[in-house]
Amino acid sequence: MANLINRRNFFKKTALPVTGIMMGSSISGLSGCQRSGAAMPASYDIMEEVMKYRKINSHEHVWPDVSPDALIDFSDRLGVEKLAISSIIPAGPGREANPQGFRACNDLVLKAMKKYPGRFLGQAFLNPVYGKESLEEIKRCIDQGMIGLKIYNQVKINDPLFYPVIEKLIDLKMVMLVHAHCGLGVGGYRPRYGNVQPNASIPEDFAMAAKRYPEAIFQYAHLHGGSDWEYACRVLKDYPNVYADLSGSNNEANTVNFALKHLGEDRLLFGSDGSYYQGIGTILSSDLNDAQRKKIFFDNFNNILRKSGNNVD
């Protein structure tokens, strides 16, 4: 980050000319701005703050048409050491996640892992509709160094089809990142405000799976991903084996504080899911102390990795 000039220094250097311009300005409301030196804010060097924390990004993707280079570029820029990545097929017309399809996805991840050894933590994608092939795929992927699973909206996480997969992951002591949605307005999951994706897992699905498998590790995907995070946190509160990652494009101001209050500092994970700036900005701007930030940026996910011996350092 040597290429960045520190904002505070820059401000010091430009303070005089700025004052000059402002004094000569004609804004009625701003006269006297330069007189009250005490009114000037303290300096805050955001990049210094960003670089202070080690980070594992718990939710990111590679795509056939996007090179992993861009991910690494953003990660370098924002001081992210490791990225948990997967490649997925969202359910939809003309898009079926058959064994051939999910294998191709995972090959993409394996390729990225090979290209940037030490940076990517692979997550296998599968479709439990294909039970046998899914279990085989888990073996193939984990054997080549993947550290967990990512599942999308083909089947809800509490569907019995998933049980063998969950049991396998329990054996492996690995986390399952599950796409999630909580698309209600108000009024629960009523059809008119319900999910656009009927098979996407909703908070109650996580609660049921977590209750059935208290020894499994679930990751509720992208709390900032367009869900009602207040509702989601309220539901997940009582299920200590459900973690939530803070990725997503909606960096709403109070989400992290709210999640902290309901889920506690040990169950929240830093993530981006394509929203690199938001993933970090939302954590930095929350009312967390340094120790809590450290946990969310790094330690919490590393502790999960430790269970399967895949921890960093």
Partner: peptide, 21 residues
């Protein structure tokens, strides 16, 4: 409504080859 720092992060993390200081 949105967090206070993401907008700043987009600026401060720009590189030299993207316009720099």
């Amino acid at each position: 409504i949105l967090d206070y720092l993401t907008g700043l992060l987009r600026i401060e993390s720009l590189r030299e080859n993207e316009g720099g200081e």
